[in-house]
């Protein structure tokens, strides 16, 4: 039985008489522990797809099966790390994670256990030192780390990352990619990441799902990235498999499915 199954998902938006088909017949099976990236040009509907998996947006037809059961509403079993971190600015770093932990584990863990679990997750993203800071007092990269800690702390079956590093500078981004790789290696989570960064997709993923341009985007190609883990970004620069994977994604994006500016 598949872990997560995206089953013939279509998404159409209706505005008045006009209907826009965003996603068409998306089917994908993801195994437990897999790291899958979804890549495509801006506006192709990749964030919509992630929102459908998260349950934040309903699919027009088709559905999502998690461990054989249909999921169509949001829940902590599919935690989301949002692009702009979405930390609550009036809560401290600790309280932001605590909000999630107390809600998800309120009845199951004791107060001391929950505290340990919050600190464990903050330490996992190296943010334990900033527990009493508010989001306004820490950098963009740190906010995103806390966002990841909040997602992980829900102990989700799948962690959904919506362009998690899109708003960060290149150096911070590399740091966070390394952190995510370490976490994925240590915990073996199933992760789905939306990205438009080819290097990021190849570096992190087991499989890269490439979406064609919208409207009516569908899965154009799925690339297996057969690189051994742990992966080291410096060694990969000259790795043949890496170069080939990178090339095939680039060719898909810039030769076969070039982004055509609307008007």
């Amino acid at each position: 039985m598949s872990y997560l199954k995206i089953d013939h998902v279509d998404k159409r938006f209706q505005r008045g008489a006009a209907t826009t088909e965003v996603l068409k017949d998306i089917s994908l099976v993801i195994d437990k522990g897999e790291f899958v990236s979804i890549i495509g040009h801006s506006g192709c509907g990749k964030s919509t797809l992630l929102n459908i998996i998260a349950g934040l947006t309903p699919a027009t037809s088709g559905g999502i099966l998690l461990e054989g059961k249909e999921v169509n509403a949001p829940g902590p079993d599919r935690a989301v790390v949002f692009q702009n971190h979405s930390l609550l600015p009036w809560l401290t770093v600790y309280d932001n994670v605590a909000l999630a932990v107390n809600k998800v584990f309120g009845g199951k863990k004791s107060k001391a256990e929950r505290h340990d679990w919050i600190m464990h997750n903050l330490d996992l993203v190296q943010m334990g030192h900033a527990r009493d800071k508010r989001p306004g007092e820490i950098s963009g990269g740190m906010k995103q780390r806390v966002g990841i800690a909040r997602g992980l702390a829900m102990e989700p079956k799948i962690l959904l990352l919506d362009e998690p590093f899109g708003a960060l500078d290149a150096l911070t981004r590399a740091h966070l990619q390394d952190s995510v790789m370490q976490i994925h290696a240590a915990l073996g989570n199933t992760m789905i990441m939306i990205t438009h960064d080819v290097d990021e997709a190849v570096l992190l993923s087991d499989r890269i799902v490439m979406l064609t341009n919208g409207p009516s985007a569908r899965i154009g190609e799925v690339l297996d990235v057969r690189l051994t883990r742990p992966r080291k970004r410096l060694e990969l620069v000259t790795d043949r498999t890496y170069i080939a994977a990178r090339e095939s994604v680039l060719k898909f994006l810039y030769e076969r499915h070039r982004f055509v500016e609307a008007a």
Partner: peptide, 17 residues
């Protein structure tokens, strides 16, 4: 912001929370 609403939805906060 819609983001805060999404956070609440993912956490399944009830109306009072």
């Amino acid at each position: 912001p819609q983001d805060y609403r999404n956070v609440a939805k993912v956490l399944r906060l009830n109306q009072v929370e």
